[in-house]
Every structure is written in structure tokens, then in C-alpha cells.
Nucleic acid binder design. Structure first.
Length: 500
RNA sequence: GGUCCGUUCGUCUAGGGGUUAGGACACGUCCCUUUCACGGAUGAAACACGGGUUCGAUUCCCGUACGGACUACCA
């Protein structure tokens, strides 16, 4: 029997969770649920300088809103606590020392400034500096210095880092679930820093150690990690551990032109990149959230799932349960996907129509009587993308027209329609049952009696009552306005047009 | 610059040695609706380029171009 599947989503609390991160979390969640595995949330906060207050809660809230909650980890607990890397600091030191002792890693004393200077020199010569088998002997580290020197310098309290001693001539290969075999020569891999001088591990070390300890079987993460995957393989090898199965997801790209989707593009395009609204605690800048814009969680999930994956059938609308059963790593695409707001909106419209009318009415039209609110929801549900448009629609509907659509008036206001409106104005007060069907037959009869064709006046009537040449069913609208209001509007319109 | 990854309609994608290259969004037209929207139908719209392998390549291989990621004591 194979090991039980365990996956993790491991964001850094450096700000709001980006929509690409949400998709990564979603794919992890889907795989875990499909295969009866465990979905773990771990926080990678090893960079103290980039820590942002509130970001961790934001991540949790965002996942909660979308319904992709972890089974284990932050906010849930579990057998491998703590799940915040800053709280596991001591652990990484142990493993880094293990690598030192086995000769797989070494101490380095070069300062950032020295390295920067080194890079500048190489760059001026048109090449790139690498801290590797070729250069490390000439730099300040435990490989180039005598053992005594190293002991002295450490004892003196000089800051140091621990670097991985990358083998000089080897080929690293691994089979990615999405990209198949990837191979890289170690000559292109740097002796990466494993432990920083502040005693914190870098991503690479912490990630590998935690994934191993937490028994992660599949690492599903963004493509930006692909270049460092060979380094991670090297680390697993150095520890003598079995690496997990890797799956590097294609990137989410900006809608216009090329490049990774960023917050800036979103602002330009007028759509969010964050699931929830986010206020940057440093700058106070507020970024839009999909939730606040009116996107439904189920629509977001469906839309996101299809950005880089598809079931191979022609079905597009998938509930989360359907996604879980249809999902597989094998059907994830290789190429990056551009974020298309139109498609997102379409998904939202589809899910909006599926919403319960009663609860939409209660939530978005709370000030209206229940029955009336529900009528409005019925009237407008097919014409909106976001639920909060209901309020705007109703407001617009309820207010007296401030102007009349000029083009329609121009074309339709004539002797016959004038006569028709006048007939209606005179007779409508006598409608007994003010209800759409009754109003309709009443109008039919009255216009016929007057010898006026219905088609000649209906659009004029619409403009007279609503101001617009197009809109929801007129008879139902009239029912909702009520007799008094209709007559008021009709009067006003006749008066206005009559002056022309 | 170097390393790695990628490339099918405008966008998301299906497909895969022989297909009318399929679907969805967006767009056009028509139908439904005395309007609009919804819905339905329909149209326009793609295999980056060049070599090779092959009877045959969009599909396999190699190059080129283009795009992207990475190249920090950031993740």
C-alpha cells in the first residue's frame, strides 16, 4: 500500500493572498480531497523583514470564504505543530548542522556587501557571479579557511551563513507531474544559503525539512519554483531523504500583453487580484477583493479551477464536489494562462442565477417587503453580474425618470402614440385588479376600442414610464410600480412630450 | 547575459501522425421576447516559423523566433 497522500499550501505572510496563490491552494485542496489525503496549511515566515501584520489572518479568511479550508496546520492544528516556520527555527538549525557535519554544507563569512561588489565586478565583465565549486575556494568560508581560522571567526561572533556544497559535476533530474522529466546540471546551481546570519533558515532549507517531517507526498506549487526544484532535490539527497512528487503549476498571466499577473494590472483592468479586500497596514492603501466586488465563492472556484486545468469534457460548470472527482494532476496544462475578467463574470452570472431568490432578496434588498423584494430579484436576476447590482437596479426602477431616451421619443412620439397614451391615461384608473396579466389584457382592449395598434404605443409607453427604451417586462414593471405611480408617470410624460 | 520552462481561434482550452481541428468567453447575425436581458441557433476566428523523420505532420525530433520564470542572507 502506498503512503497516504499529504499536500500543503505554504504561503508567506507578506501581504494579501494573490489569486494565483488561491489557485495553488485550490489544486492542493482538490487533489487531497480526491485521493482522501490531507491538505495542510503552513506559514512560511522565515523572512522577518517582509512580515506583514494581518496577512496570516487574511490568508485564513480568504480560504474560508472560498471553502478551501485545510485539514491540518494553521488554524486547525495537527501532529506536526507548530506550522509557522518562525516557531520551528531551532529545528532547522539541527538539520543545517547535520549537513555541516556530513560535509554537505559549509560556513560562509562573506558579507552581503562583499558579495554585491563581487556581482558588480562580474557584471561589468558581462558575466554572472555564482557562488559555486569554482568560486568558493576563493571566498571566505570554511572550505577555503583552516579549521582553526573557522573556529576563531565563529567564536569571535562574526555573523555567518551556512551554504549548501553543491557537487561540481552532476546532473540533477526529476520527474514533474506536469512537465515530465526536467534535468539541470549542477554547474548552473549556486551554493545556496541554507541558514541566514540571523539564524533563520532560507525558504529552501525550511521547505525541504518541513515537507519531509510533515510527510508531504506531493508538492504542488507555482512555476516560479521550478528553477529551484533541482536544488531541493539536491537537499533531499544530502539528507538521504526521498523527495516528494513535484508538480509545478503554470503561471497566471496578465490579461493584456505578457507577463505575470500583478496587482498593478488588476488596477488598470478594473478587477481585483485578491479574494478579499485588503488594506495594506503600512501604506493604508486599500485593494479590491473579489468578494466585495460581488463574486460568488463557487464561481471563483470554478473559474480558477479552469485556469490551467480542464476535465477533458465539454462541461464547464462544476461544483466543488464535481471538481474534486474530476480533478487530476495529469490534466493540468503547461502553459501560463491569461486572466480573463469576462470569463470570470460569466461564471459569476451562471452561479448567480442558481442562487436562492429568497436569500438574495433578504440579503441585498433588506429594506423592502419580502414579497416585493423577491419580485425584484426575479425581474433583475437575468440582467446582472453581481448581486449588489440588485440594489442599484431597484433604486433606478423606483425613481421617477429624470430623462426620456431621446432616440425613442424622436422615432415613436407621433399622433397615434400620443393618442394611445392619452387613452391609457384616461382608462388605466379603471383597472380593477392591478396585476400584470390583467393590465395587459385591459390595455389590449382599450387600445383596440380606440382603433390604435398596440405596437405603435408600447415602446412609447415604456419610455414614458421608465425613461428607457429597453428594460424588463413592462406589464410586470407596471404591477410593481403600482397604479398610482404609473398614472403619475404617465401624466408627467404626456405633459413633457406634449410641449414638443 | 546564463539556466530552466513554455507556444492550438482575441482569451480559456479539447485533440493528437490521416479530423470539416471541437467546446467556452468575448464579438456578429438570426430566432424567442411588441423592448432589453436570459435562452436557443448560427457566423467569423487558431495549430509561431524553418528543417528533419514519415506515404502523410498541427501532432514526433532538432533548430529559430517569441514569451515567461529564476538568477538575494525573498519567498
Amino acid at each position: 500500500m502506498s503512503k497516504k497522500l499529504r499536500v500543503r499550501f505554504a504561503p508567506s505572510p507578506t501581504g494579501a493572498l494573490h489569486i494565483g496563490g488561491v489557485r495553488t491552494a485550490l489544486y492542493n485542496y482538490l487533489l487531497a480531497h480526491k485521493l482522501g489525503g490531507t491538505f495542510i496549511l503552513r506559514i512560511e515566515d522565515t523572512d522577518q523583514t517582509r512580515f506583514v501584520e494581518g496577512a496570516e489572518n487574511y490568508i485564513l479568511d480568504a480560504l474560508k470564504w472560498l471553502g478551501i479550508m485545510p485539514d491540518e496546520g494553521i488554524g486547525v492544528g495537527g501532529p506536526h505543530e507548530p506550522y509557522r516556520q518562525s516557531e520551528r527555527k531551532e529545528l532547522y538549525k539541527v538539520y543545517a548542522d547535520e549537513l555541516i557535519n556530513s560535509g554537505k554544507a559549509y560556513y560562509a563569512f562573506d558579507t552581503s556587501e562583499e558579495l554585491d561588489a563581487m556581482r558588480a565586478i562580474y557584471e561589468s565583465k558581462g558575466s554572472a557571479f555564482q557562488y559555486n565549486a569554482l568560486t568558493r575556494v576563493k571566498l571566505k568560508n570554511s572550505l577555503s579557511m583552516s579549521e582553526q581560522e573557522v573556529q576563531d571567526i565563529i567564536a569571535s561572533g562574526t555573523p555567518y551563513v551556512i551554504r549548501l556544497k553543491v557537487p561540481a559535476k552532476a546532473e540533477i533530474r526529476f520527474q514533474d507531474s506536469i512537465r515530465d522529466w526536467v534535468h539541470v546540471h549542477t554547474s548552473s546551481i549556486d551554493d545556496k544559503v541554507l541558514m541566514k546570519s540571523d539564524g533563520m533558515p532560507t525558504y529552501h532549507l525550511a521547505n525541504v525539512v518541513d515537507d519531509h517531517i510533515m510527510e508531504i507526498t506531493h508538492v504542488i506549487r507555482g512555476e516560479e519554483w521550478l528553477p529551484s526544484a533541482p536544488l531541493h532535490i539536491l537537499l533531499y539527497q544530502a539528507f538521504g531523504w526521498q523527495p516528494p512528487q513535484f508538480a509545478h503549476l503554470p503561471l497566471l498571466l496578465k490579461p493584456e500583453g505578457n507577463g505575470k499577473l500583478s496587482k498593478r494590472d488588476a488596477d488598470l483592468g478594473g478587477f481585483p487580484v485578491f479574494p478579499l479586500e485588503w488594506k495594506d497596514p503600512q501604506t493604508g492603501v486599500i485593494s479590491k477583493g473579489f468578494k466585495q466586488e460581488g463574486y460568488l465563492p463557487a464561481a471563483m472556484i470554478n473559474f480558477l479551477a479552469f485556469l490551467g486545468w480542464n476535465p477533458g469534457t465539454e462541461q464547464e460548470l462544476f461544483s466543488i464536489d464535481e471538481l474534486i472527482s474530476a480533478f487530476s494532476l495529469e490534466r493540468i496544462n503547461k502553459a501560463g494562462a491569461k486572466f480573463d475578467v469576462n470569463k470570470a463574470k460569466w461564471f459569476n452570472e451562471q452561479y448567480l442565477k442558481l442562487q436562492d431568490v429568497t436569500s438574495l432578496a433578504a440579503q441585498y434588498l433588506p429594506d423592502l417587503p419580502k414579497k416585493e423584494a423577491e419580485s425584484f430579484v426575479h425581474l433583475f436576476l437575468d440582467r446582472i453580474t453581481f448581486p449588489q447590482e440588485l440594489g442599484e437596479k431597484v433604486k433606478e426602477f423606483t425613481e421617477l425618470p429624470s430623462a426620456y431616451e431621446e432616440e425613442v421619443v424622436q422615432n415613436k412620439w407621433n399622433e397615434e402614440s400620443q393618442k394611445g397614451l392619452q387613452v391609457l391615461n384616461d382608462t388605466l384608473p379603471f383597472v380593477e385588479l392591478w396585476e400584470a396579466d390583467a393590465i395587459k389584457s385591459f390595455i389590449q382592449v382599450k387600445l383596440e376600442e380606440a382603433g390604435i395598434k398596440m405596437g405603435k404605443v408600447m415602446q412609447m409607453l415604456r419610455v414614458a414610464l421608465s425613461g428607457n427604451g429597453a428594460g424588463p417586462d413592462l406589464m410586470i414593471s407596471m404591477e410593481l410600480w403600482g397604479k398610482e405611480q404609473v398614472l403619475l408617470r404617465l401624466n408627467k410624460a404626456i405633459e413633457t412630450f406634449g410641449k414638443r
